[in-house]
């Protein structure tokens, strides 16, 4: 089973930091980054395959399509069995965290920056 790690964030530096962390992880060389939900959605529409495992690191606040809208759109494309979404946002707003908890695809919510502890949780989730 191939792992595909999608990093969806309009903040280049944030993407770079996530990438650096992932270099020393099981997800090294599996990352593809998108600066907006729209592009990631197009990718999934074209490339999604049930045999792959998708790890999606998703920002909330993005210009064209935000994280919430993106989740709405992919609901019908992906399956929760092979797709794990981790919200990664600068927001520490309770409303955002509570909202994320209601969405089946979302496995966890992390406030930026991404840390080793977050990474461990992602790995643990992926192995289960």
């Amino acid at each position: 089973m191939n792992i595909k790690t999608l990093i969806i964030d309009d903040d280049d530096i944030s993407v770079m930091l996530t990438d650096i962390l992932f270099e020393d992880s099981p997800f090294a060389n599996t990352t593809i980054s998108f600066s907006d939900g729209v592009f990631a959605l197009e990718y999934l529409k074209a490339e999604y395959c049930d045999d792959n495992k998708y790890i999606i690191i998703l920002d909330i606040n993005m210009p064209k399509m935000d994280g919430w809208e993106f989740l709405q759109h992919i609901k019908d494309i992906v399956s929760p069995s092979n797709t794990l979404v981790f919200m990664l946002s600068s927001s520490t707003d309770k409303l955002d965290i509570e909202k994320a908890a209601t969405i089946e695809l979302v496995k966890d919510y992390f406030s930026k920056p991404l840390t080793e502890e977050h990474l461990d949780k992602i790995i643990e989730c992926t192995n289960n």
Binding site: D11, I13, S14, L17, I60, N61, S89, S90, S91, T92, D93, S111, K112, P113
Partner: peptide, 9 residues
């Protein structure tokens, strides 16, 4: 959302 973005970075 906005203030924490550069701070998190």
């Amino acid at each position: 959302h906005v203030v924490r973005a550069p701070l998190a970075r």
